[in-house]
Design a protein around this nucleic acid. Structure first.
Lengths: 241, 241
DNA sequence: CCGATGAAACATGTTTGACAGGTGGCCATG
DNA sequence: CATGGCCACCTGTCAAACATGTTTCATCGG
């Protein structure tokens, strides 16, 4: 009704407007990770809204991983965090909006490309880390819980070698929601033959990347996704929804 | 110092615990999109915490896109929304955690795979929509603002033909943060030669997908990303950070 | 002069109570 | 049976207050 006193705040809920204000502030002032943002009361006075509303906004931004708010400390800009993306996917899966196979479909192509880019962008240290992670896979049988962790470490090492934060984030995020169902599936139903195949495939992946052979790396990762994992998928062992 | 009085509520903030409670509720009760969740006061009484805390949690979940809360209405489970992902990427870009080229690197591979999967999973209607979207690209010059919209529509049509919500969501989300910088870039610096090339490439994409030729589709999309766009990228015209 | 100590200032965490306004269903009246 | 109004319930917002954790800085003792 009135537009003469408060010029900015009008259409949506106050919280949403405060959130937009803060995001705008971050963009405008070119704030980086670790920088502080104004305190709740400051913003509350600045925008002439109650502290409760501002609190809601801060907590919302903290939930999406933008801000880090802790008691006593000044709120700071937080680093991009794969867990919020992972929660997003996990939630989508929990509400049956996506299923495990669809996640695999996306993961396959992203990890294939990650392997390719790792052959191009990876430093020698990156490749060494990948090789070490690959070696550690021989230390445990597939049924061992530790093996899953080593497998995870290998794929993460590949993702890091890409030197593109998006790949690191998304690969971590897409892996998390499948972790437990994978553990169960692999623990229960893997035959000796499949186990040997899986280990051999991982060796191929490591070797291809370390030789900076993009084509072979891509192919190896593709097979890694196609052969054993999708077999489990089709058996219905890996099931997330 | 003391650990004898409060047994349950201790480590995290109450808000976080309420959020976890709600997410757990959604998972446990197998709630789907559109279902209602308990009201703020109900949860507040249920968990014996103040309504303000519960409100913060509800708003946080609304910001993440999980819940839809409106005055008077009961809070409901919301459909997965690409805008929250887009905001995530936009925020990462705004805080210089990622740059435009890294987004393109991810987009290229995802959209390539989308084209491949579209040839496999797309229905005849899907392909018809893709063809129509492709035709409309000839109606405007590249410099026209409407052309960008048609280009967007084409890529979205391809994403939809995959029949995997993750592809729809991520392609939409990755495109949004680049939209404006692309608009400027294309408007200002595209030569006639490049323009013809771009349009021809789009025709190739449409034709390949409609012929269900996965290899050609993938190749066409790859070139679409490699040739004109990366040229703009290298010139520094498209710049997001 | 320097460093440690303590308190004040400031930050978030949480509660209570209150009121306004929107939404939807129930019920009585026509 | 239809329709209006009414009421119960919901979110949106504010204000004041207290608890607790962190930072800062001045003061005091060496």
């Amino acid at each position: 009704m009135e537009d003469f006193v408060v010029p900015v705040m009008q259409q949506n809920t106050l919280s949403s407007q405060v959130i937009r204000f803060l995001l705008g502030l971050i963009s405008e002032k070119r704030l980086k990770v670790g920088d502080v943002v104004p305190s709740e009361v400051k913003v509350s006075e600045m925008l002439q809204v109650s502290r409760g509303i501002v609190r809601e906004s801060y907590r919302a931004l903290a939930t999406v991983g933008v801000l880090s708010v802790q008691s006593g400390k000044r709120p700071r800009i937080r680093e991009m965090d794969p867990t919020v993306l992972a929660q997003f996917f996990a939630y989508a899966a929990a509400t049956s909006q996506i299923n495990a196979q669809q996640i695999f479909e996306l993961r396959r192509v992203i990890e294939m490309q990650a392997a390719v880019l790792a052959t191009k962008n990876g430093t020698d240290e990156d490749l060494m880390r990948i090789r070490e992670a690959g070696k550690r896979l021989h230390d445990y049988p597939i049924s061992h819980p530790e093996w899953i962790a080593c497998d995870y470490a290998l794929h993460i090492a590949i993702a890091d070698a890409v030197h593109n934060p998006l790949f690191q984030i998304i690969i971590r995020a897409l892996r998390a929601p499948l972790e437990e169902s994978m553990r169960e599936g692999i623990e229960s139903q893997v035959s000796i033959h499949t186990e040997i195949h899986i280990v051999a495939l991982h060796d191929q992946i490591v070797e291809a990347i370390c030789n900076r052979d993009a084509v072979a790396a891509s192919k190896a990762i593709e097979e890694h996704f196609n052969a054993p994992v999708s077999a489990l998928l089709k058996k219905g062992i890996i099931n997330i929804n």
